[in-house]
């Protein structure tokens, strides 16, 4: 797993420059609660060399809005909708209520304080 550390402003441009539909395969978006901050990871994998897994990692504050990559990777909407519901983070143009009911208690995967 190759980690590429980047920042919230640059991550979308980085992914846009990196992602080629016929070379790379989008896997999933994951988020880890680090306590103060949340780390969001975009996983990609190479078709020709599948053991090469690339992760774009960004550390954000819980109330920051992260950019959606739906215009670059079309199929990322499921992963984004899941993150919004389970981790309770804000993603551009993504509404709540795909995974859980709209009136749920937010962010079941976040650490309890």
């Amino acid at each position: 797993m190759n980690r590429i550390e980047t920042s919230i402003d640059k991550v979308k441009d980085d992914i846009r420059n990196f992602y080629k539909p016929d070379l790379y395969h989008f896997v999933v978006i994951n988020a880890v609660d680090l306590g103060e901050k949340i780390e969001v990871q975009w996983f990609f994998c190479e078709y020709a060399n599948p053991s090469n897994i690339i992760a774009f990692c960004v550390q954000i504050n819980p109330d920051e809005e992260i950019p959606s990559i739906r215009d670059i990777v079309e199929s990322s909407w499921v992963a984004e909708a899941e993150l919004v519901d389970l981790m309770n983070i804000k993603i551009q143009n993504t509404a709540k209520g795909f995974v859980l009911e709209p009136d749920f208690e937010s962010g079941p995967l976040r650490k309890k304080k």
């Binding site: 896997v27 999933v28 994951n30 880890v32 996983f43 199929s75 909407w77 499921v78």
Partner: peptide
């Protein structure tokens, strides 16, 4: 493709486990 991500913190309990099932990728 089944994808697992795990993070440990030197205790018996994992810090994070992410499961990406094949159908999840196929929904779009």
């Amino acid at each position: 493709e089944l994808f697992y991500y795990a993070k440990g913190n030197k205790t018996q309990i994992l810090e994070r486990l992410k499961i990406k099932a094949p159908t999840f990728s196929n929904i779009p």
